[in-house]
């Protein structure tokens, strides 16, 4: 931990000074804002005509009821889907930039072990993603309140908060594979491409019923509130996800330790 702390501190400084901090915060505030606009339009159909494309889109999307249960359920699915992509972007920035900025070489021959540097980066990615999840959920609550959704109850919020937290954590666990791809691909492009590919494949595996066995499909399935349309997830699904995450961590550590670094 003594060695990991300065590496985490370094990550925090880079993050604090970067533009990406504000880009990701704005993105995670923007998502519930857009959801709020759509909810508002569905709730007030007379605005649909005035809002043009947004009105048409919101009319096309069938939200069901414009209540808190529906709204928070959508938020959960967003953290599983868009979160997967955004968290992958965050991870690729933390790991891939060392390659693209050519700063990696300064981290390889230090009294701090390479494992400490990698673990510090994982800790930082987890903290950042948790921070973004908190922003998404809290700004979601604020937007929901502004739109004056119906059906507010503490039980609904707590139930959905639980689903949201676990979905976020399951999604964050998958970032380790993105870190490996960023290290292996030595930059940003490969991990972002990988994340898009996993997300597309998650849709496909969901359609053919393999979602519970596909690591990147599991958070999406979990985010669906238990009900008639949800697919139950068993221990096998969680084990697959955890093993994938561990494989990502071990792969990244091994890559930093054993592969030739340029």
């Amino acid at each position: 931990m003594k060695n990991i702390y300065p590496a985490v501190w370094a990550e925090c400084l880079k993050w604090y000074r970067s533009k990406i901090l504000w880009i990701t915060i704005l993105a995670f505030i923007f998502i519930p804002c857009m959801m709020g606009v759509l909810m508002f339009v569905v709730k007030n159909p007379e605005f649909a005509g005035k809002l043009g494309l947004i009105g048409t889109k919101s009319a096309m999307i069938r939200f069901g009821n414009t209540d808190w249960q529906t709204y928070l359920g959508l938020l959960n699915q967003i953290i599983a889907g868009a979160g997967l992509l955004c968290f992958a972007f965050v991870t690729s920035w933390v790991f891939g930039r060392e390659y693209s900025d050519r700063t990696l070489k300064d981290l390889l021959a230090l009294p701090v072990s390479r494992s400490s540097i990698v673990i510090a980066k994982f800790i930082f990615v987890a903290l950042w993603c948790v921070f973004l999840s908190v922003i998404l959920f809290t700004s979601g609550l604020v937007v929901g309140a502004l739109v004056q959704l119906s059906g507010w109850s503490g039980a609904i919020v707590f139930q959905n908060a639980y689903l949201f937290i676990v979905t976020s954590l399951l999604t964050i666990l998958l970032c380790s594979t993105v870190a490996f791809v960023a290290s292996y691909g030595r930059g940003y492009l490969a991990p972002v491409g990988f994340a898009i590919f996993t997300l597309v494949l998650a849709q496909f595996t969901g359609v053919v019923g393999l979602g519970p066995y596909y690591p990147w499909g599991i958070p999406i399935l979990f985010s669906t509130a238990p009900g008639a349309e949800s697919i139950p997830l068993g221990m096998i699904s969680y084990s697959i996800l955890f093993l994938t995450s561990i494989a990502g961590v071990i792969g990244t550590l091994a890559w930093w330790h054993y592969a030739d670094q340029y």
């Binding site: 060695n3 300065p6 370094a10 230090l110 009294p111 701090v112």
Partner: peptide, 8 residues
């Protein structure tokens, strides 16, 4: 400063 901290 990052290097100072990483080098302890």
């Amino acid at each position: 400063e990052i290097m100072r901290r990483l080098r302890g």
